[in-house]
Amino acid sequence: MSLDYTLTLASGATAAQIAARMPPEQPEWTPGTGSVLTADLYQTLGIDISLWADRHGYVDAMSDEGLFEWEPDPLVTVIFNLDGPIDREQAAANMIKIVHGLLESGPEDATLVINGDLLLVARFDGKIAKHNRERWWSAYPAADRVIPG
């Protein structure tokens, strides 16, 4: 079963500008339909990445406090698909390292949601909060060590 993680950044940046901030090394980006960029990192990191800039976004997911809703405008969406040959825990840690790098390299408000259902990370006004520690973070200790808090 594929796991999809959606990082939403409240940003007026282009997809290419956000892609340029991707750690650890700059992946080779393939243009998709419209302004979508994709990178196939299945063999090396166990993830596939797609990103695009948009307007009028909507995020809803279950947080520690109940239903979380947010409407960023404009936004950049980064989708991570973890369905590669790499161990799932290692792939999750690799994805979280990229998320952490993006959060460290810019000031945007942001959320990270798994399968459109669970809020894992929210950053607003520069403060990062982890959510669903028992349901997700405890199952991925290597990923849990990447983002403090």
Rank of each mutant, 00 (worst) to 15 (best):
S2W: 08
L7D: 11
T8P: 04
G12P: 07
G12A: 11
A15F: 04
A15V: 03
A16S: 15
A16K: 13
A16Q: 15
A19I: 03
A20F: 00
A20C: 01
R21L: 15
R21P: 06
P23E: 11
P24R: 09
E25I: 06
E25G: 13
P27Q: 07
E28R: 13
W29S: 09
W29R: 06
T30F: 09
T30P: 09
T30K: 15
P31D: 11
P31W: 07
G32I: 01
G32N: 07
T33E: 14
L37T: 06
L37D: 04
T38I: 05
A39Q: 04
A39N: 05
A39E: 04
Y42L: 15
L45T: 02
L45S: 10
L45H: 10
G46I: 02
G46W: 02
I47E: 08
I47F: 08
D48L: 12
D48T: 13
S50T: 12
W52Q: 12
W52K: 14
A53Y: 06
D54A: 15
H56T: 13
H56A: 15
Y58W: 10
D60V: 09
D60F: 11
D60T: 14
A61M: 04
E65D: 11
G66V: 10
L67A: 13
F68A: 06
E69W: 00
E69I: 10
E71D: 13
P72F: 05
P74E: 01
V76I: 02
V76M: 00
V76Y: 03
T77V: 15
V78F: 01
N81F: 00
L82W: 03
D83I: 07
G84H: 05
P85V: 06
I86A: 05
I86W: 02
D87W: 05
D87N: 15
R88V: 09
E89A: 10
E89C: 04
Q90P: 02
A91S: 07
A92D: 08
N94Y: 02
I96W: 07
K97P: 06
K97E: 15
I98F: 06
V99C: 02
V99K: 01
H100Q: 14
L102Q: 09
L103C: 05
L103V: 03
S105W: 00
S105D: 12
G106E: 11
D109S: 13
T111K: 01
T111I: 00
T111R: 01
L112H: 06
L112V: 09
I114H: 05
I114D: 07
N115E: 12
N115Y: 05
G116D: 07
G116A: 04
D117K: 13
D117F: 10
L118C: 09
L120F: 07
L120I: 08
V121G: 06
D125W: 01
K127Q: 13
K127N: 10
K127F: 12
I128C: 03
I128D: 02
A129T: 14
K130H: 05
R133S: 13
R133W: 12
R133I: 12
E134K: 14
E134Y: 12
E134V: 14
R135C: 00
W136V: 12
A139T: 10
Y140L: 12
P141F: 02
A142D: 15
A143P: 03
D144I: 05
D144K: 12
R145F: 01
I147L: 14
P148Y: 07
